[in-house]
Amino acid sequence: MGPNRPQADVIQLTLPSKAEYLGVARLTVSGIANRMGFSYEEIEDIKLAVGEACTNVVRHAYKETENPGSIHIQCHVYEDRLMIEVSDQGVGFSNELIAEQLTPIYAGKSLEDLDEGGLGLYLIHTLMDEVETRSESGVVVSMTKYVRQDGVAGNDWTISEAEI
């Protein structure tokens, strides 16, 4: 790694791919986000996005197999952002599934009316600042949320300029 590449603390969690463990995933990311100084609303968004990503694993990744498999969660803690990767070793997305999940078909409904997992990737995209989905040995959903200062994404130079 070069000297300009920021170091991240990495927290890893592996859970059985079962719905009853989703609360553990949400609690873990909530604790990390809280420690980083995210607002209550932002922490709720992060928890919901991680819950959605994990729900997708439970529903889709291992349906062809007898073994429930695992959900792997990696939290990369940087000074200015939290990057969370949720992955599985399941069957991978079909392109139709991705297209279907990115369509805002729930536009007329309120969030309260939807089951967790009902909005999938579309919701994750609206809740997080950056989202990347890739298919490797399974599916990896990478989600980033920036820590904001005074309602603006935190950049070192804005703070130092304000001090001048």
Rank of each mutant, 00 (worst) to 15 (best):
A99Y: 03
V10R: 15
M1D: 12
A99S: 15
T28H: 08
Y146Q: 01
L97E: 10
G151A: 11
E100D: 02
A107E: 13
T126N: 07
G120H: 10
G37E: 00
D113S: 14
Q74H: 15
E85G: 03
V29T: 15
I105C: 09
A99D: 13
S135R: 11
E85N: 04
H125E: 08
K47W: 00
L111Y: 12
Q101C: 03
R134W: 02
E79T: 02
E52C: 00
V57I: 07
H76P: 00
T65R: 15
A19R: 14
C75W: 05
K63G: 06
S137C: 10
R59Y: 09
G117D: 06
G2S: 12
M36W: 02
V152W: 15
K47D: 00
A25P: 03
Y78G: 02
D9N: 15
N34I: 03
Q101L: 02
Q12G: 04
Y78T: 15
E41A: 13
E20I: 09
V141D: 00
D150R: 13
D80L: 06
V147R: 09
M143G: 01
V58R: 11
A25E: 04
R35C: 08
S30E: 07
S87P: 01
R35Q: 15
A153E: 13
Q101E: 14
V141G: 01
I124W: 12
D88P: 01
Y21N: 10
H76G: 10
T103K: 15
Y21A: 06
D113Y: 15
Y21K: 04
G151Q: 08
G117C: 07
E136Q: 14
E116R: 10
I46P: 09
Y78P: 10
R134M: 05
D115K: 14
T55V: 05
G138L: 03
Y40N: 03
E79Y: 07
T65E: 14
V131N: 04
S135D: 09
G23H: 03
L119H: 10
S39N: 01
L102K: 07
F93V: 00
N4I: 04
H76C: 04
A99F: 02
G138Y: 02
E44N: 05
S30T: 14
F93N: 04
G2I: 05
K109L: 12
D45V: 03
V57S: 10
G154Y: 03
G92F: 01
S135A: 05
D88N: 09
H125A: 02
E66H: 01
E20H: 09
G37V: 01
I84R: 03
G92R: 11
E132L: 06
N95A: 13
P6H: 04
V91A: 12
Q12D: 12
E132S: 05
S87F: 07
T144C: 08
E163V: 04
G31D: 09
H125S: 01
M1Q: 15
D88R: 12
E20Q: 08
L121R: 13
T55D: 09
G138R: 04
A107G: 14
Y106E: 07
G154K: 14
H72D: 06
Q149C: 14
G90K: 02
I84C: 01
A33R: 11
K63A: 04
E41Q: 13
G154T: 03
S94Y: 10
I159Q: 10
N34D: 12
S160V: 11
A53S: 06
N155W: 05
T28Y: 01
I105F: 09
E44M: 04
S160Y: 04
G117V: 02
M143T: 02
F38T: 14
S110F: 07
D45W: 00
S135C: 04
P6E: 05
Q12Y: 11
G120Y: 11
